[in-house]
Simulated scan of single mutants.
Amino acid sequence: MLKNHSIQIRDPFIFPNQLDGKYYLYGSTDKNIWRKGTGFDVYIGTDLENWEGPFPVFRANDSFYSEENFWAPEVHEYRGKYYMFATFLRKDNQRRGTAILCSERLIGPFEPHSIGPITPKEWDSLDGTLYVDKEGQPWMIFCHEWVEVADGEICAVKLSDNLKEAVADPIILFRASEASWPTAFSHPKRTTKTNYVTDGPFIYQAENGDLMMLWASFVNNVYAQGISRSLTGKITGPWLHDEIPIYKNDGGHGMIFQTFNGNLMLTLHSPNKSPNERPKFIKIIESKGRITVLDNELNNQEK
């Protein structure tokens, strides 16, 4: 068994499987995610603290369209199968993009489903997530990277019913600078002096029907997690941004899930520097569309 403090992982994503009463923890699991990609693993546990694994769920063969930057896998159940949304650096043009893999089982193996990344080929994009609206239309929500556009964007694109391709052009939901809490930074390798990051969008439907989005950026060069909400209840917005991040202790790329005991949890990775990143599980409550952090970095989640 492994404890959370022993698991190096970025971009943690939990799939609570009601069928076997176990949590499946996915994430960026390569020891050096900035270099050659190996694949993705899963950890399996019952209490969010003790884990079996890692078990390999995806390994790329020589014909795969990427061999570098295997990032941020999310696994969603859709029409009886499991779909992994994950980011890869393309071989053909060295641009990052999110593709979709598929498996009959949570433990894989996951195989390529979309024909390469679904995000625009000439864009630097990452961190795609699935959202299915009230009409049953699937969308991918993703980030158009700051490394290309300086002011990072969060975008949405309609997907085909079989999740194999985009069926429309992406639309910009908002830019990072539109929220009050992220701060700008300069980078020695970029000509732009004012840059803002968008990372890890995740869609959450509140009990009162509010459509909310978690996403990450930086506050004075410290990784942080904030929330935005759609004023119309539609993915197309417009989006209103909470003024204060819910987590600003060098952690982000979060998602919300419900435990088998009915508690709401926020998971994210912290700190943000390799190789020290670890999964954090933080108990929260949600009331009238507002999220409150109750405990920080819980060790015994189900008490």
Rank of each mutant, 00 (worst) to 15 (best):
A168M: 10
P54W: 02
N208L: 01
T98N: 06
E207M: 04
S217G: 12
H5G: 00
G289W: 00
T232I: 09
S125H: 07
E297G: 00
E207L: 01
Q258S: 10
I172S: 08
I33T: 04
G152K: 08
N276D: 15
N296L: 08
F70K: 07
I203W: 11
P109D: 06
I14C: 01
T292E: 12
F70E: 12
H187G: 00
V219K: 13
M84N: 04
P117F: 14
A99W: 09
F40D: 09
V167Q: 03
L106I: 07
S230C: 12
D92G: 00
N4S: 05
G226Y: 11
T46D: 10
K193N: 14
T267I: 05
A224Q: 04
N249Q: 15
V75M: 09
N272C: 10
F55I: 15
Q94T: 02
N50H: 13
A216W: 09
S66Y: 03
E148P: 02
D199G: 01
G116K: 10
K273R: 13
L89D: 00
T259V: 04
Q225N: 11
G37Y: 02
V197K: 09
T38E: 11
A168S: 15
R35F: 02
S217F: 05
V57I: 14
S6N: 11
D41E: 10
R105S: 12
S160V: 09
N299M: 11
F260P: 10
D295I: 03
E77W: 05
G39S: 02
F142R: 00
Y196W: 15
G97A: 07
F64E: 04
F70H: 11
I100N: 08
G152Y: 10
Y131N: 05
P201G: 07
F218E: 06
S217K: 05
S125G: 04
W51K: 08
P54A: 01
A99I: 04
I9T: 03
H76A: 00
W215Q: 04
K3A: 02
N4W: 03
A156N: 10
P182V: 14
T267P: 03
F185V: 01
E122A: 14
G53R: 12
E145C: 14
D20L: 06
F88H: 02
V197E: 09
G53A: 08
Q137Y: 08
Y78E: 07
L298F: 02
H113W: 14
N221I: 02
T98H: 08
C143K: 13
Y82N: 03
S230R: 03
T232F: 07
K273F: 08
K158A: 12
S186L: 05
Y204E: 04
N249G: 02
Y196I: 07
T119Q: 06
E148N: 06
A179F: 06
K193G: 06
P271M: 14
P201S: 04
Q258D: 08
V293Q: 01
G45T: 11
D41L: 03
L48C: 11
I172K: 12
S270V: 12
S228I: 05
V132I: 14
S230N: 09
K234W: 00
G128F: 12
Y24F: 14
V167L: 07
D127C: 04
K189P: 01
H5P: 00
M213N: 10
P138Q: 00
L163D: 04
D92E: 15
G45D: 10
P245A: 09
G97S: 05
K22V: 01
V75F: 07
K248P: 00
W181A: 10
Q137H: 09
N93D: 06
L231C: 12
Y131W: 13
T191D: 15
S287I: 08
D242Q: 12
H76C: 02
